[in-house]
Design a protein around this nucleic acid. Structure first.
Length: 430
RNA sequence: GUGGACGUAGCUCAAUGGUGGAGCAUCGGGUUGUGGCCUCGGAGGUUGUGGGUUCGAGUCCCAUCGUUCACCCCA
């Protein structure tokens, strides 16, 4: 039996790997343009970073985290999300002593032991950004603007328009308990009309009952108390400001009063960017929100933060949904006929690469010109440089243009200058 | 973690329980050192894996692995 990758873990091969690299490069450039600094944190943390950060009783920590004992019997876990580790790193490296507000950006793999599905892997990747150290609603809007800017960069107009930004406020420790209590009471009073799942949810995670698709439950929840009627003046004002600022950014949104997040730390602003043109299991492309209390809870200063994550696999699914991944750029291609020309051609290929051209060199110097040209064609060669016995004797090279079939002989001495001239005429194609 | 569907060549898919095929891709010819198009040919498979039923299984049954859809949950 041949080897198989671990369940839920996937190889990324070309051409997807090309698009993947592009995605990482461009999104990083965009984050830098917003003033974020890159950060790289380990995939492995002490388990407590996550139990304290995300919450002991979340599904992510309780059921999905890869947790095991290290050789010294300490419990360590693969990170199921980025925020807790970034905050741990910010505190440990005393970043808040450098300046009070930290804007941090990272891309990397996360691990959750779920049943795999399309767009749901056990190792998956996120583009992640956090603004730590400010309660300003401008930061919330900026985080959302960063997410939408990155998505807009990679999606064509129709796909981008098919995205929906849903936003809600979860309140704060001041006002949230009042809503929680009233909701719990309401659910208890209507428990006979709820499905079995929702009876359980009423106990474990009452807000989730809003998400139930069963008619009975939906009917009950139509009259259930909504958090927005319970927000304290501070939270209400914050939400209002965030929405105002989103309009300043010209970002469309819909308020979803039942939007919940699966991580305990969220307060006030919470949002999701979902695609309407993709399966339910992978429709959430990006998500995030504000977290008061998390940074201090992890041993840092008592300041607030806000962050977002984009699921790379899900974004890739959306991008490639009905589109081909673009080909690599054109290449120049060296064709030695026989072994005698190699000593002339290899140095020239080095020189061209140093000048920044994309250069491939045929490996099959013993093969016929025909098969090497065929190969050159398949390798997307625009200019092919051929040198055989005749050319070695005359100290010259054939330059063949594969697009317009033209070919010319140039002397070895004039070769590089001739390529510069040709490439210039091709308008930066190389 | 729960329930359903599907696994045949590198890819997309055929084959009534009776000798597993096609298209594309790949490799090689179509006169000496000129690619794409065309044409001819070759190679490629323990039908995911392991059991079972049957004279006979790609096809039916069970298990297992994988994929996928809906849940749970989430990026």
């Amino acid at each position: 039996m041949a080897f198989q990758a671990v369940r839920g873990f996937k190889d990324v091969i070309y051409p997807e790997s090309r698009l993947w690299d592009l995605l990482e490069e461009r999104s990083k450039e965009i984050a830098l343009s917003f003033g974020f600094e890159g950060i790289k944190t380990p995939v492995l943390e002490n388990t407590e970073v996550f139990t304290r950060g995300i919450g002991q009783h979340t599904d992510i920590v309780e059921k999905e985290m890869y947790t095991f004992l290290d050789k010294n019997n300490e419990s360590i876990s693969l990170r199921p999300e980025a925020t807790a580790g970034v905050i741990r790193a910010a505190i440990e490296n005393k970043l808040f002593a450098r300046k009070p507000v930290q804007k941090l950006f990272t891309i990397g793999q996360m691990f959750r032991h779920e049943r795999p599905q399309k767009g749901r892997l056990r190792q998956f990747h996120q583009i992640n950004a956090e603004v730590l150290g400010t309660a300003s609603p401008i930061a919330d809007a900026e985080i959302i603007a960063l997410a939408t800017t990155i998505l807009q960069e990679f999606l064509d107009e129709n796909k981008f328009k098919a995205l929906r930004l849903e936003i809600n406020s979860l309140g704060c420790p001041e006002c949230r308990p009042n809503h929680k209590a009233d909701l719990a009471l309401y659910l208890t009073n209507n428990v006979e009309n709820l499905c079995d799942d929702c009876k359980r949810r009423s106990e474990t995670n009452p807000l989730r009952v809003f998400d139930c698709k069963k008619e009975g439950c939906k009917k009950v929840m139509q009259r259930a108390p909504l958090i927005k009627h319970y927000l304290c003046p501070g939270c209400a004002e914050h939400l209002g400001s965030v929405l105002d600022f989103l309009e300043c950014y010209d970002i469309k949104f819909v308020q979803n009063p039942t939007l919940v997040r699966g991580l305990d730390y969220y307060t006030k602003t919470t949002f999701e960017i979902v695609s309407t043109s993709i399966g339910a299991a992978q429709s959430t492309i990006a998500a995030g929100g504000r977290y008061d209390g998390l940074i201090s809870q992890m041993g840092g200063p008592d300041v607030s933060g806000v962050g977002m994550a984009i699921g790379i696999e899900r974004l890739m699914l959306l991008i490639t949904q009905d589109e081909e991944i673009p080909e690599n750029k054109d290449f120049m291609f060296f064709v030695p006929l026989g072994s005698d020309s190699i000593e002339y051609l290899l140095p020239l290929s080095k020189k061209l690469r140093e000048e920044g051209y994309n250069v491939k060199f045929s490996f099959d110097f013993k093969a016929s010109l025909k098969s090497q040209l065929k190969n050159a064609d398949r390798e997307k060669a625009r200019l092919v440089f051929i040198m055989g016995e005749n050319e070695v004797n005359n100290k010259e090279i054939i330059i063949k243009d594969m697009l317009n079939h033209a070919q010319e002989n140039v002397s070895l001495d004039n070769f590089i200058q001739r390529i510069r001239d040709l490439a210039e005429n091709y308008n930066e194609e190389y």
